[in-house]
Nucleic acid binder design. Structure first.
Length: 514
RNA sequence: UCCUCCUUAGCUCAGUUGGUUAGAGCACAUGACUGUUAAUCAUGGGGUCCUAGGUUCAAGCCCUAGAGGGGGAGCCA
């Protein structure tokens, strides 16, 4: 099996990188010549008229009459297609028959000024090779609008659609912007472990990692599973956060960030949750809560600006798409701003910063609360905010991103720095319209005695966490950090409604297809 | 996990109070058309009405259970 895959892989024409250029060997009947292919994105710059060109890509639509056939080709480099013109005098009927929606082509020809209205230039084909046929009877994608739910079921093919092409190009740009932002600021990219042995943060249900025989696991004298016989000789799981290890790194490199996969086995069935998602977690020594908020706001504005500058066409497409969706909604559910306006608004305006206590006052005195329109009425200080409350603050009261700070300590994690009032901790959540919580962070408790006391109160085993506590024993310093759900960021920037549509192959309860 | 809505052609959907042979657009096939822009026009093929059971003279439509999906909630990023 492995050998046959190996052979198959290397049966392709070998392209060997050589200082003098690319050399091809083992020429097959279809010459690949990747090095001479011109991408649609480049062709659309319309500065190559008169030149010969080779285009490779997938057929989106074909329109034809007796004299001429037009083929819209997309190669993923752009949301836009490039028009290929095939004259039946040069391209055989046999070939044109195989030019169907979804087929993959290699076209050679001359770039000429277009006689039609929709484009400046086009490729007049002298040869068309069918690299891969797509049977039009069974190929599921048509040149029409499909529902996102249907496309989710064919996630292996949906990447070929305009919408998902745009989403994944933007996702890439955002990921790149994340690294660029931190690199330019002197942060170091740390890889924290995927497999961990602690669930100390209590951030949720974990996926277990084991090589034990599930049907017949080794048992201890007490009848429990004996993890001493497991691969790591202890119980292990997939990481729910890289934060604790991130803190360790920040205590030597000062400013670090992680950007990696995160796993939560929660039975969450919502448009905002995934079982496997990507999280960005910066952790900074010598930062207090204020610095942390400043960084998070600056960071979010930077990556969103980056997308606005570098993904114009894709954002315009998604903006138009969202606007069309809006027209089918009821008048009171339509959003006031379009996608691009919304992104600009976030970039150009300061986030609203309020404390939890202030938020409770606003909510308690709101007409919404007095008229009992909240499902959960706000009565007293100390309760956790429901998403209806967060949405009220962000979407109705302030109408912009909100940084909520200084939450009651009892509803937050053990590692957050305790404030002088004895009731609250230096936590921050950043809430975005339509998305809810996009960032959760805090200044960390750097004082050993405060931290151990809090851990004991919350029944966190201090012995197992000796390595974490060591950072407070030796050279401790004020530090802070936050976690940002990458897919939630992509969700906001693309204006998509469901988090399953901003990751290529989503993992959710009951779904690990593809 | 809870609440709620949905499931009819490959896709998106209509289908009246239960009543004869279940429709449309797109897609597909064939043909027409001197440059199209998700081309257009004509003709044609295509159905386990989600599954199982029930009520009825008669079920796409009513009832029960199940499966799949959407939206909302909780948990969170």
């Amino acid at each position: 099996m492995i050998k046959s895959l190996f052979n198959r892989f290397f049966a392709f024409p070998l392209i060997i990188h050589h200082p003098l250029g690319l050399f091809k060997q083992n020429q097959s009947s279809i010459s690949m010549a990747f090095n001479t292919r011109i991408k649609v994105k480049k062709l659309l710059e319309n500065d190559l008229i008169g030149q010969d060109a080779t285009l490779m890509g997938w057929v989106r639509t074909k329109r034809s009459n007796k004299n001429v056939t037009f083929i819209a080709v997309n190669d993923g480099s752009s949301i836009h297609n490039y028009q290929v013109v095939a004259d039946p005098a040069y391209i055989s009927e046999e070939i044109l028959k195989k030019v169907t929606t979804g087929a993959c082509l290699k076209i050679t020809g001359k770039i000429v000024a277009s006689q039609g209205a929709g484009q400046q230039a086009e490729l007049a084909a002298s040869t068309i090779e069918i690299l891969g046929e797509a049977d039009s009877e069974t190929y599921p994608l048509q040149p029409k609008k499909h529902s996102l739910e249907f496309l989710r079921e064919i996630a292996h093919l949906r990447i070929r659609t305009n919408t998902f092409g745009a989403v994944f190009r933007i996702r890439h740009a955002l990921a790149f912007a994340v690294h660029k932002y931190f690199n330019d600021k002197g942060f170091f990219y740390i890889h924290t472990p995927i497999i961990t042995s602690s669930d100390a943060e209590g951030a949720g249900e974990t996926f277990k990692v084991t090589i034990l025989d599930l049907k017949n696991p080794p048992l201890t004298d007490e009848g429990k599973i004996n993890f001493k016989e497991d691969f790591f000789e202890k119980e292990t799981n997939l990481t729910v956060s890289g934060q604790l290890e991130g803190e360790l790194a920040a205590m030597g490199l000062a400013e670090i960030y992680t950007f990696g996969p995160t796993f939560r086995a929660e039975n969450s069935n919502t448009a905002r949750h995934l079982a496997e998602f990507w999280m960005i977690e910066p952790e900074m020594a010598f930062y207090d809560a204020q610095d942390n908020q400043d960084l998070a706001e600056d960071f979010l504005k930077y990556v969103i600006s980056y997308a606005l500058e570098n993904c114009k066409d894709d954002l315009e497409f998604l903006d138009k798409r969202a606007a069309e969706e809006e027209t089918s909604k009821k008048a009171d559910q339509r959003s006031e701003m379009g996608l691009i306006d919304r992104l600009r608004f976030v970039v150009e305006n300061e986030f609203q910063r309020i404390t939890y206590t202030e938020a409770i006052d606003i909510l308690k005195n709101s007409n919404h609360n007095k008229k009992k329109k909240f499902q959960y009425l706000i009565e007293s200080w100390g309760v956790d905010l429901q998403s209806e409350h967060e949405r009220y603050l962000v979407e109705k009261h302030f109408n912009k991103p909100v940084i909520l700070t200084d939450y009651p300590k009892d509803i937050k994690a053990f590692y957050m720095r305790q404030n002088d009032d004895g009731k609250t901790v230096a936590a921050m959540d950043i809430l975005f319209p339509g998305i809810g919580e996009i960032v959760g962070g805090s200044q960390r408790e750097e004082r050993l005695e405060y931290l151990t006391k809090r851990m004991e109160e919350m029944h966190i085993p201090t012995e197992e966490m000796w390595w974490y506590l060591d950072t407070r024993r030796f050279g401790s310093t004020p530090h802070a950090g936050f976690g940002l759900g990458f897919e939630r960021l992509v969700l906001f920037v693309t204006g998509m409604g469901n988090i399953r549509d901003v990751i290529a192959f989503p993992r959710t309860p009951g779904h690990a297809e593809f």
